[in-house]
Structure formats: C-alpha cells, structure tokens
Design a protein around this nucleic acid. Structure first.
Length: 302
DNA sequence: AATCGACCCTGCTCGC
DNA sequence: TGCGAGCAGGGTCGAT
C-alpha cells in the first residue's frame, strides 16, 4: 500500500506484532522482490536468519526493521518498499500459502511475516544504516538516504521545501510526487491536497506564490493525517494492514477517483486527465488550469 | 544539472 | 461469452 498513511498503518502493525520477535526461518522465493539486493534472495536469507527485530521505522513510503538493537552506522536493517501493491502481513505460521507470496519470515512466537505483492514493484533489501540524519538523530538505510523529509517528521521544514518547489521549473504536482523534494505523497494525496488548495497540478511551480505552496504542503500533511485516522485509503483488498483489514478513507476522498461526480465545493463535475502515465483528478472551476494546459486540452477536443 | 517520457509488472473492469 | 483496451496507490533510468 503505497502512500505515507498506508505505510504508517503497516509500520504500526509491525511495531505491535513483529518488534521483539526473533526471526527463525526465512524464505525468499520472488526474484523480483530481491532484485535490489546484491547477492539476491540467498543474501537476504543469510543476513536475516537468527536476528531479532528491534524496531519498525518509516520515512515517506520507505519502511525498515532494525535488527538486534543495533542502531549504529553500518548495522543491517531490512528495508521494505511496498511499491504499488506490496503487503506486509502477519499470519499464523500454518496459514495456507497465498498467490503472490514472495517472501516470508518465521517468528519465534509461531507467527509468520509475509510479503505479498501482486505487481512486484515492491521489494525487500538487507542494507546498512547510513549516516544521513533526518533531524531526529535516526539513521536512515543507505538506499533511502536520498529522499527528503516527509511532512510528519519533526525535521520537515515547510518553508524551505516551498522555496525549493518555487525554484524548480516544472508542474507543481510533479514536484509533490518527487520523493527527493518531499517524501510520502503519492497520486491520491497529491490530488487531494491540490483540490483542498484550489491549485491546478499543471501550474508551473514558479508561478505559484510562496504562501500558496506552503499552504499546499500543509494541506498535504493534513489530508494524510485525516487518512491515517481512518486507517488509510483502500479501494479493494490489495491495500490492507498487517492483519489484512482495509482502511476507509476512500469514503472521504474529494476528487481522487471521482471523475464526473460533483465537486464538493462548487458542484462542477470532477475531471480526470492523463498525467505522468497516471491520472489527475481536479475540479476545473475551483482549480483553474494554466493557460498553456487549457490550450492543449482544447486542441485535443477538436 | 534538471527535466521528462518510457518502462517495469499483474490483474481487474469495461465496452464492443 | 470472449477479447482487447484501459486503468491501478510505486520508483528508476536514459535521452535530451
């Protein structure tokens, strides 16, 4: 489950059900799940076996389990990215295997931690903690050290982030989705934050005022906090917590997935447009398109 | 250096 | 009923 609130729901579940447990057996059957691991699946198996999970941490959409209480530079951790469809599930060790089960770790309490991933964009990697600090003194796994702070972190600086966004020259939604600028925001919450801010995602970042960009970041944080309160967003059984339960924030979405239905503010039909090989949902009245984008759309209609 | 499109996967839904 | 097109929450990489 992709975006920050859904990953945080998973992290909390791991904190409750997996932290403190020793990993007795490991099996990694999915080659793609281990594709970022030098040494492949065997390396993950070798480095996880016998370790005790000591913490569950998250930055943006990256999740990692610290091992053996070792939080020093160079210590191994299990870095998990859920990609588009990854699930971390805690089941009884005797539970039947399921489709798209790519990795599992048998725990010393008779449970099993499973990685299930239909679209295989997610993955597991055992990597060292790097020196990069995130403002709280927490060490980040090396492959996650390049991303920016997420809006839930104490070290997140909205003003500095807004200035970064205004300095760049591209569509503002593209920057919301750029994990090196601000992490944790994905397609759903980008659309929701833009709607709450009444900003069109195709606006060039430099044309949005500093005040509007800081407002946009604040809306992004707020909508993700609302979603977290609801247990995250899920439209189907693909996006669930460690116990397999769905969140219900999809009922509170204002524009995402609501093409053709009335805008909650003005009643105009919500529009869906192609953007970055995905979709963008917005109110054409509350979120006026920039001139160039409007012209392009007219050209398509003709 | 920064920007942007192509690409990586599987499975479901919808229209013909 | 069958089949292809379109769509889905992610990131990375190479060309410009």
């Amino acid at each position: 489950m992709p975006e920050l609130p859904e990953v945080e729901v998973v992290r909390r579940g791991l904190e409750t059900h997996v932290v403190g447990r020793r990993i007795d057996r490991v099996e990694v059957s999915g080659a793609r799940t281990a594709r970022r691991q030098p040494g492949g699946p065997a390396e993950i198996v070798a480095r996880l076996g016998g370790r005790t999970v000591s913490g569950a941490r998250r930055r943006g959409k990256y999740l990692w389990l610290t091992l053996d209480g070792d939080h020093t530079v160079g210590a191994d951790c299990l870095l998990v990215h859920l990609g588009m469809s990854g699930q971390m599930l805690v089941t009884d060790a005797g539970a039947p295997p399921v489709r798209h089960l790519h990795a599992r770790a048998g725990l010393d309490d008779g449970c099993e931690l499973r990685f299930v991933d239909q679209r295989t964009f997610g993955g597991w990697t055992v990597v060292p903690l790097a020196e990069a600090l995130d403002g709280t003194g927490v060490l980040l796994p090396a492959p996650a050290a390049h991303i920016g702070a997420d809006p839930f972190e104490p070290g997140f600086d909205p003003l500095a982030t807004a200035r970064t966004i205004r300095r760049r020259d591209t569509e503002v939604k593209r920057l919301l989705l750029d994990q090196t600028v601000v992490s944790g925001i994905g397609n759903i919450y980008a659309d929701e934050a833009l709607w709450r801010s009444a900003i069109h995602g195709r606006r060039r970042s430099g044309t949005v005022t500093l005040r509007a960009v800081t407002g946009l970041l604040d809306h992004a944080r707020a909508v993700m906090a609302d979603a977290l309160d609801a247990g995250g967003t899920s439209f189907d059984a693909l996006y669930v917590n460690v116990n397999g339960a769905s969140g219900y924030f999809d009922r509170s979405l204002d524009v995402y997935g609501r093409a053709g239905r009335p805008c909650a503010r003005c009643g105009s039909p919500v529009v869906r447009e192609d953007f970055m090989n995905r979709g963008s949902h917005f109110c054409p009245v509350c979120q006026p398109a920039p001139r160039r984008a409007r012209a392009a759309r007219r050209a398509v209609v003709r």
